[in-house]
Amino acid sequence: MAAKTLTINGKQISAEEGATILQAAEEAGVKIPTLCHLDGVYDVGACRLCLVEVTGVPKLLPACTTKVSEGMEIKTDSEQLQKYRRLTLELLFAERNHVCAVCVANGHCELQTLAYSQGMDHVRYDYCFPKWGVDNTHRLFGMDHNRCILCTRCVRVCWHIEGAGTKNVAGRGSKAKIITDLNMPWGESGSCTNCGKCVQSCPTGALFYKGSTVAEMERDRSRLEFIVTAREKKLWVASD
C-alpha cells in the first residue's frame, strides 16, 4: 500500500494510504482525545472530541473518520480546538447525572479522565438533572442511563462484533436512549447473548457488572482483541 506523507502539529510523518488521521497520529505518538471511538469497531464521528484543523479545509474534521491524504497539514491542539473540547465535555457533564463520587467507574472513567486531561475543571452551564432510570433486570449486567453519553459503542460492539443486535438507540435529541431489543427490560431480551462486550466497551459507568460498587468497575482497554475475539478464544466467560 502506498504511503502518504503529511504533517501533524508541524511534525512530518508518514502514514499508510487509507489510514485515518487518528491512526496516523497515534502511530506518530500524537495523542488526540476520543470518546466514541473504540478500536475494533467502525467509527461514527459522533462525540466531536477528535476534531482537528486541516489547512485548506474550512470545516473541522473528525480525526476518526477522515482519511489521510498526501501533503495534509493537520493541527490537533490549537487553542480553539482545546476550547471546543472543554465545551463539549462541559455539555456532556451538564446533560445527564454524572456524579463521580458515587459512580462505579470512578477513577476508571474515560469521561472523567478526559475532563482532567483537557482541563475542564468546572461546568458553567446549568445541569439538566434529567430523570433517567436504571435497568437492573439483567442477570449479570446493569445499565444506568443517567451516566450514558450516547457514544453508541455498546450498540456497535453488539451489532458488529457479537452480532446479536440487542442494543439500539431509540428517540431523538436529548430524549435519545440506548434500548435493548424493542425497548424492553434488558433481562427480558431474547437476543442478548450475555456476552458482556457492551459492558467492556462502555467509557463511563453506564454499563456495569452487577455487584460492583463505587470505583470498582474497571475495564481493560489494552485487551481490545479480547473484546473482538473473546468468544472464539474462550477468553471471556461471563459469569457471576
Binding site: 461514527v44 464521528g45 459522533a46 462525540c47 466531536r48 463539549t88 455539555l91 456532556l92 451538564a94 446533560e95 452551564y125 446549568d126 439538566c128 453519553i149 450516547l150 453508541t152 438507540v169 428517540g171 431523538r172 435529541g173 436529548s174 430524549k175 435519545a176
Partner: peptide, 21 residues
C-alpha cells in the same frame, strides 16, 4: 432544532438544549 436534533453528536444534542435554556 432542539426537538429535531437526532441526538448523535454532542454539540447539537446537548448544545441546543443549553442554548434553548
Amino acid at each position: 432544532c432542539m426537538d429535531e436534533s437526532c441526538g448523535k453528536c454532542v454539540p447539537c444534542r446537548a448544545g441546543t438544549v443549553q442554548m434553548h435554556h
